[in-house]
Design a protein around this nucleic acid. Sequence first.
DNA 1: GTCTATAGCGTGATAGAC
DNA 2: GTCTATCACGCTATAGAC
Lengths: 266, 266
Amino acid sequence: VNSVQYNLAFQLIDTGMPAIGHAERRSRQKQAMRERILDAARRIVMREGFAALSMRKIADAVEYSPASLYLHFASRDEIARALCTEGYAQLLETFAPVADIADPAERLKALGRAYVAFGIANPQTYRLIFMQDPSYTAAVLVSAAEANDRSSVDDTDDAAFRMMVDALAALQADGRLPASANLGVWAEALWATMHGIVALRLSWPMFARASLDRVVDTALDAWLGGQRDHDVHDVGERDASPDAADAKAHMRADAGPTTATKPPRA
Amino acid sequence: VNSVQYNLAFQLIDTGMPAIGHAERRSRQKQAMRERILDAARRIVMREGFAALSMRKIADAVEYSPASLYLHFASRDEIARALCTEGYAQLLETFAPVADIADPAERLKALGRAYVAFGIANPQTYRLIFMQDPSYTAAVLVSAAEANDRSSVDDTDDAAFRMMVDALAALQADGRLPASANLGVWAEALWATMHGIVALRLSWPMFARASLDRVVDTALDAWLGGQRDHDVHDVGERDASPDAADAKAHMRADAGPTTATKPPRA
DNA sequence: GTCTATAGCGTGATAGAC
DNA sequence: GTCTATCACGCTATAGAC
């Protein structure tokens, strides 16, 4: 093992550019292989759910032997965590257009609608990230911290959470939220509400009595509504706002929520 | 197979009481065995999580061979569904003391607090019921319908949901909820909110920034609060209300949320 | 790097003796 | 009813040839 590393270092110092070219190509190829593996894994999860994700299946899909996968990932769990990171990044991308909305209440509502839309459009991905193993869910924050060049994970690291707190602060500054309100608590509770709407839809589809949009709008109005441009708590027959529709348009489709569930068994 | 059934019928008609006594004792023993199996299964789930539940482990616990379990349950899934039914019934029991609260808003709040308290106190059970397989979650409603002597499952079958709708209706009759509000939508969204608070705590413990009680109270105030006996959206430093504490006192403890997670693998 | 082969463990469910 | 024995799988991960 050590001799290999030594050889590489020797080439870098002694032979200059061509060797660097080699090393670069090497690492590029390795990176490409990692992507191929993750691509295959993501497709399996989207089609059949996380429980059906196995090293054998991934290997089949990329046309390598199962053993080869271990050259790029230490374990199945590491692949799962990578998928979570990827998926969470995808969720954050969804929020980008929302960030431009000037009014903080409307921004928060659009955020909530985009969040729910993502979960419903990518049920298996959402399940993997937020409804599976706590260690997977924790992985999204750790990697978010790494991306920010921080070594420790603390309260304000997460971009999505920060967006919420910022909007709530703006609302509070406008006097549209009581000065006594604790922003962190509010953000957490608001996130939980949106998560609950998605999670309940995914794991109890039969529970759904009303259209998703009405439920989401009712919740958003209860939290943020009425204080500005419509009546308190009034839930009309209207469809999702243009913002939500727009957010939905950016989504790739996952497998349907109920169809692919229940593979032979984990 | 047929001959056995025939013999039973013959005894019932011909020899009268003693035979009935036999049959009764037989069925009693069978029922007892079912209970023993479910008890063992419940303990395993509470200690190690549902993923760790296997027929072998149950068999070990009840000191029978794995094969014998199949005389009482057709499959592992059937045991899981039975556990869900049981767990949901336990949740409903939790609501009994709450039903007496006269004020509908306070009743709803107490309901929400009891719900969350149950989920936090029995994380593995809650996971099994509401966060695992949609077919498990669906099972609670089906059996609830059976208990009510109904053959079809429709909107209003569920006792918990009915409690919510009733309270919301009372609120609406008092003019404390806009006449335009759709009760079904409100109940669904409110349930989703409470579910989200529990589910997020269970699957993303690191996310928790504030005390559970503050989050719950903030959510309940956003939905129902302020319109009556305290300021709008004011979240004080107070602890859980007596109602919630009371509800908690009725709970049996599950395994801790994070400790027993992640058994070798499903 | 990639393969084959396999260790080592687990699972749900069943056949058939007693 | 209860058991033993086993089928038929599945899995992760690794050893060692090439």
